[in-house]
Design a protein around this nucleic acid. Structure first.
Length: 592
RNA sequence: GGUUCCGUAGCUCAGUUGGAUAGAGCAACAGCCUUCUAAGCUGUGGGCCAUUGGUUCGAAUCCAAUCGGAAUCACCA
């Protein structure tokens, strides 16, 4: 990489000129700002104490040294204390020639190290997926792909939350009021059917609580004594005791939900290498807790509940087993983590989970350590922000959730209408057209979500449908389609031996520089686990290309060498757009 | 109340380890299709980077305090 060569040369310069050894990692270059001439800029201010000279003079001396020692450097200029280094155009053209046909440009070779696990999605089987889950799925999937591109050995895992009191609520409601309704009989998608009964449970439960309060009970007491909740708890105990009828009902309803989830995952293009089920790990969790108690690392209270005392860690006590012996969320997470560690000995276990669970993961790591598992440090909680609506947070029970399936189908419809209004397609009902609507709709949705820094909360306004113009997925897809159309006109013949003496325009060099940054962008995105860096990078590239496309003839250029050069740049841009969008899970059309 | 995260244009968001005059998109206004796809391009207006101190040659970026907002602190998950 030219950056590293430049830095080494600068370090040499400082050593030769000022007799001081500088660690190369303490030096940094930045891209030269557009208003100045040059490619890379080095700020000399920190080294004035060493040079004991004015900024301009120091910069001039270093610039002189670097220019004389490196073939790829054309020259330099100095403005205040900023040394702007100009790279020869032959460097950029060589870069183009060498990478134009490299289908894995920007990717690191596969390292043969212990795997990195990425857990995402982690759905509950009592309700369908909503916009919050969409962010989770897209983030997790994309982070996994970016890590792969960076050479990691990645395992994508899902953890299905298929047991627990919330599942029993749906089951109980269906049993009481469902009249044997099935996805077939109702035409409802399986996950939506389960969700319907979850909502129904809550409705009647609330009613019971109100009635008890009206009779003079405290609200807290009422919430614990309402017949419905007692019945649900009863069901959970029966489930843990493997009661035949309860298990049968559980299998039936979960089966419906899985069928529903599969459809949604397929539509979104989300996949997994391995799926864990809480129902298969919670017993391991229980045994870990029992062992911890026997080893005197946990405490049992009079009512038989088991707790971890975290007061020495500045936290509170944490329940691990209820007084009736059933397990909680934390219990199964201990079991799941343990099982995964045994299976993969992963160097890192990344959990993509919303920031509302920050405390949970702090506790998980502390409890694991307390129990003597050193590998607790390999657990990393990739904590992402909530998706907020204009009215505030999404709440299932208040009906303010944006349903994943509904949102996606609305987006597809919008894509269809927009294509119609723009007169883009001849046959609007053809199979090809339908694929295109899907590609564009998902492109818009995925890009909208992934371009935001994962850590931050993000706003989604359902009344303003996601845009297809400007800083969006379709903008980038469109750029790709236009390039493909150009390349087709040239019969897809792309030269990789561009003459190093041709004249390069500013816009062309800007594009080459951006392409040159792709490998570093992937690396950075992998290190910071942020697809947003890829998303913003690819927008910048597409935008720069569109400016070029508008102003400069490509296929119509009469000079053959220039035409080949511009076609080559165009082809390279198309490759990188396709590659980078692929890391976001967004496919790019050939035509649109 | 404790802990954690966030405050950048009217709105939605960028701004890599501190660097030169703070960047996009949307919305508004004005232009560009007999020439490679106008889902595009060009231009105009729009900012006390929440506030106040500090560190530094240099702060949107680092530190502290204050003010706003969010999450969490359950025998829910």
């Amino acid at each position: 990489m030219i950056e590293e060569i430049l830095l080494r040369s600068i370090a040499d310069a400082i050593k030769t000129l000022y007799q001081t050894d500088i660690d190369i990692t303490s030096l940094s270059l930045q891209k030269t700002r557009k208003e100045f001439e040059g490619d890379f800029t080095f700020a000399v201010f920190p080294f004035l104490k060493i040079s004991k000279k004015a900024p301009e003079q120091t910069a001039n001396e270093i610039g002189q040294f670097v220019t004389e020692s490196l073939d790829d450097v054309e020259g330099f200029n100095v403005i205040k204390g900023f040394l702007n280094i100009v790279i020869k155009k032959s460097y950029w053209l060589n870069f183009l020639n060498q990478n134009i046909n490299n289908t894995t440009f920007g990717f690191n070779p596969h390292k043969n190290t212990s795997p990195v696990l990425v857990e995402y999605s982690s759905p509950n089987t009592n309700k369908p997926l909503h916009l919050g889950h969409i962010r989770n799925n897209l983030l997790g999937w994309s982070v996994a792909e970016i890590l792969k591109a960076n050479g990691e050995n990645v395992v994508k895992v899902n953890l299905v939350n298929d047991r627990g009191i919330h599942i029993c609520k749906s089951m109980l409601a269906w049993k009481l009021w469902g009249n044997m309704e099935t996805p077939q009989s109702s035409g409802l998608k399986g996950d939506h059917l389960a969700g319907k009964y979850y909502v129904l449970f809550d409705k009647y439960y609330k009613k019971e609580v109100e009635e008890l309060v009206a009779k003079g009970f405290d609200k807290e007491v009422a919430e614990k004594q309402a017949p419905l909740i007692i019945e649900a708890q009863n069901m959970l105990r029966k489930w843990e005791a493997k009661d035949t009828d309860v298990i049968k009902l559980w299998n039936l309803m979960n089966g419906w939900v899985y069928e529903g989830f599969d459809v949604t995952y397929k539509t979104m293009g989300i996949d997994f290498d391995k799926t864990y089920y809480e129902s298969q790990t919670y017993l391991l969790g229980k045994s870990i807790v029992e062992k911890g108690f026997n080893d005197d690392k946990l405490i049992r209270k009079e009512d038989n509940s088991v707790w971890a005392d975290l007061t020495t860690d500045g936290l509170d006590e944490k329940l691990l087993l209820r007084s009736d012996g059933t397990s909680v969320y934390m219990t199964q997470d201990l079991g799941t983590a343990h099982q995964r560690h045994e299976e993969y000995k992963a160097s890192k276990m990344i959990y993509v989970v919303g920031n509302e669970q920050n405390y949970h993961f702090d506790v998980l790591k502390i409890v694991l350590k307390k129990l003597g598992y050193d590998w607790a440090d390999s657990i990393y909680h990739l904590s992402y922000g909530m998706v907020e609506l204009p009215e505030g947070k999404m709440k299932s029970r208040e009906g303010t959730v944006v349903d994943a399936d509904v949102l996606i189908s609305e987006m597809i419809e919008t894509a269809r209408q927009t294509a119609f209004e723009l007169g883009k397609i001849d046959d609007f009902e053809s199979e090809e057209a339908k694929i295109l609507y899907h590609t564009i709709a998902l492109g818009a949705l995925k890009y909208f979500i992934l371009k935001v820094d994962p850590q931050k909360n993000m706003m989604f306004n359902p009344k303003e449908s996601i845009d297809f113009n400007g800083h969006t997925g379709p903008f980038i897809q469109y750029t790709h389609a236009r390039i493909k159309s150009l390349l087709n006109k040239a019969d897809n013949v792309i030269a990789n031996n561009i003459d190093l003496n041709i004249n390069i325009l500013d816009k062309e060099k800007n594009i080459l520089q951006l392409l040159h940054e792709y490998p570093a962008t992937i690396k950075q995105a992998a290190e910071s686990l942020s697809p947003a860096l890829i998303a913003n990078y690819i927008y910048e590239l597409a935008k720069e290309y569109n400016g070029f496309y508008q102003e400069i003839p490509v296929f119509k250029e009469e000079n053959i060498e220039l035409r080949e050069f511009r076609l080559a740049i165009s082809s390279f841009v198309a490759n990188v757009i396709k590659s980078a969008m692929g890391l976001l899970g967004i496919s790019v059309p050939e035509k649109m």
